[in-house]
């Protein structure tokens, strides 16, 4: 069951990711990215990470992508016109990406610890309470710092979007 769900949603996720890289119109790219994020949330569910899956749908697929679509429509971007592709850039990019994938697959085959079956959970999953406990006990200081970071980001956005930058 888990294997089937994993194959369905991870292949959908990769396919939509391919759409983001290849499609010309920014709106289609953004919609592909939303679908890719939702499939990623489904893959999180197959890993029993329910809270992270919900956060992924709400924040990444919801808030962030709405921001992207809003900016695309604000700037009134049309489909990218075809320009002459630089052969060196294309070739270099493809070589780097392919060598990354080949190296990763070799590294995953090299050690038996990556091919263990999935371990059985002892207790029923209590995702939200356990994440809350970890967040507020072990990671309290980073949590406060992230709060300050969000405040600084908000102030920065307000400053950047003023009409005259001084």
């Amino acid at each position: 069951m888990q294997l089937t769900l994993f194959w369905i949603f991870s292949s959908l996720m990769i396919a939509f990711g391919l759409g983001v890289v290849t499609l010309r119109s920014p709106i289609s790219c953004a919609m592909c990215l939303v679908s890719s994020f939702i499939c990623l949330a489904a893959v999180f569910v197959t890993l029993d990470a329910f809270f992270i899956a919900i956060v992924q749908v709400l924040v990444a697929a919801g808030a962030v992508m709405v921001l992207f679509l809003f900016i695309i429509m604000l700037l009134n971007l049309q489909a990218e016109e075809c320009r002459r592709v630089k052969l060196g850039v294309m070739l270099g990019g493809t070589v780097v990406v392919l060598s990354f994938v080949v190296l990763l697959s070799q590294a995953l085959e090299s050690s038996p610890q990556f091919s263990k079956p999935i371990p059985v959970l002892m207790a029923p999953s209590q995702d939200v309470s356990m994440i809350g406990m970890t967040l507020f006990h072990s990671f309290n200081l980073p949590f406060q710092i992230v709060g300050v970071l969000l405040l600084v980001a908000t102030v920065g956005v307000v400053l950047l979007s003023r009409r005259t930058l001084r």
Binding site: S36, V97, V101
Partner: peptide, 25 residues
């Protein structure tokens, strides 16, 4: 049975797609 390498490979493929997009688009 899904193994860790399945998930890491899916993650690596998604990462390399993103990397390709950053370099080619």
């Amino acid at each position: 049975m899904t193994t860790l390498s399945h998930y890491l490979m899916a993650s690596g493929l998604l990462f390399s797609l993103g990397l390709a997009g950053v370099m080619l688009r």
